[in-house]
Simulated assay, not measured.
Amino acid sequence: MTDSIAVPSSAFGAERPLGAKAMTVLKAARKVFLAHGFAGATTDMIQREAGVSKSTVYAHFANKEILFSAVVQSECFATSINIRNIQFVPGKIREILHEIADNYLQIVLSKSGLALARMVIAEVERFPNLGKTFYEAGPKPCVSQVKELLFLAQQAGDIELGELTAEEAARVFVGSIRSEPQLYYLTHPEETPTKAQKQQWSKLIVDTFLRSYGKTD
């Protein structure tokens, strides 16, 4: 996550800039959560890391769950900017799908992305809103963006979805990208994927998708 932190008011929507102290607290919270996990992190730790009073922390974030939700939102929003900026170009669907796949793998297989996913999975039964926040800030807007790109590709005749809607096709594509790689590295924290491994998986998914839905002459 970059030093410029913003929490989106809605997925892929306008940003709601945070004040300087709130940003300081959020940066400190990110560091503490990634180091100690959700259960192990305390507001005292975050307060000390941020160098602010406890009242300052609570003035911006009412409790630890809300603070963690803000960290998840800001992380997802910051790391997904490349996907949000992808533009449709007629006749370039293979290149577009590769760009989506490459960028999405960078997000879900990043050290912080995997760490946050593990935390959410570990705590979602006790704090259901964490799971909802994670989904609304991460996978859902990505599917939405891919849906728009696939709709334009279908309109241009670059793909043929048959009875599938653009949203259904987007769910298939995005789900395929993260499937095995994300599961593997979630359960093997001591390993790190190489650039070549990510590129190989991206090519496999794009080739498979286009064999099913690519335009045939």
Score class of each variant (00 low, 15 high):
residue 73 Q to R: 15
residue 122 A to C: 10
residue 118 R to Y: 01
residue 122 A to G: 12
residue 137 A to E: 06
residue 81 I to D: 13
residue 135 Y to K: 07
residue 92 K to V: 00
residue 122 A to T: 13
residue 98 H to K: 11
residue 78 A to I: 03
residue 86 I to S: 04
residue 116 L to V: 13
residue 72 V to R: 04
residue 136 E to Q: 10
residue 133 T to K: 02
residue 149 L to N: 04
residue 107 I to K: 08
residue 109 L to W: 06
residue 131 G to H: 06
residue 91 G to C: 05
residue 149 L to I: 09
residue 95 E to H: 08
residue 123 E to K: 06
residue 145 Q to W: 05
residue 102 D to I: 14
residue 109 L to Q: 07
residue 135 Y to L: 13
residue 83 I to S: 06
residue 134 F to E: 08
residue 80 S to T: 11
residue 150 L to F: 05
residue 120 V to C: 06
residue 126 R to P: 02
residue 69 S to Y: 03
residue 140 K to E: 12
residue 119 M to E: 15
residue 127 F to W: 13
residue 91 G to F: 01
residue 130 L to N: 03
residue 131 G to L: 05
residue 89 V to A: 09
residue 97 L to T: 11
residue 119 M to Y: 12
residue 85 N to H: 12
residue 151 F to N: 02
residue 117 A to I: 04
residue 114 L to K: 07
residue 121 I to A: 15
residue 112 S to H: 10
residue 70 A to G: 07
residue 90 P to G: 02
residue 71 V to P: 01
residue 72 V to S: 02
residue 69 S to A: 15
residue 73 Q to N: 14
residue 133 T to I: 09
residue 144 S to W: 02
residue 118 R to M: 07
residue 121 I to Q: 15
residue 90 P to Y: 04
residue 80 S to L: 08
residue 135 Y to N: 05
residue 149 L to D: 01
residue 119 M to N: 14
residue 146 V to Y: 02
residue 127 F to N: 13
residue 150 L to K: 08
residue 128 P to F: 10
residue 145 Q to D: 04
residue 127 F to E: 14
residue 100 I to M: 06
residue 137 A to V: 00
residue 123 E to Q: 15
residue 150 L to H: 09
residue 106 Q to M: 13
residue 122 A to E: 15
residue 74 S to P: 00
residue 74 S to Q: 12
residue 105 L to H: 07
residue 106 Q to W: 03
residue 73 Q to M: 13
residue 98 H to F: 13
residue 101 A to P: 11
residue 87 Q to K: 14
residue 123 E to R: 08
residue 121 I to S: 11
residue 108 V to W: 05
residue 126 R to T: 15
residue 130 L to E: 04
residue 77 F to P: 03
residue 74 S to G: 08
residue 99 E to D: 11
residue 124 V to H: 13
residue 128 P to K: 09
residue 135 Y to A: 13
residue 119 M to S: 12
residue 114 L to I: 12
residue 94 R to N: 13
residue 84 R to N: 09
residue 112 S to Q: 14
residue 76 C to L: 04
residue 88 F to E: 00
residue 76 C to F: 11
residue 115 A to G: 07
residue 88 F to S: 01
residue 77 F to K: 01
residue 119 M to W: 10
residue 94 R to M: 09
residue 108 V to L: 02
residue 71 V to H: 00
residue 131 G to P: 04
residue 143 V to A: 03
residue 103 N to A: 15
residue 117 A to S: 13
residue 128 P to M: 06
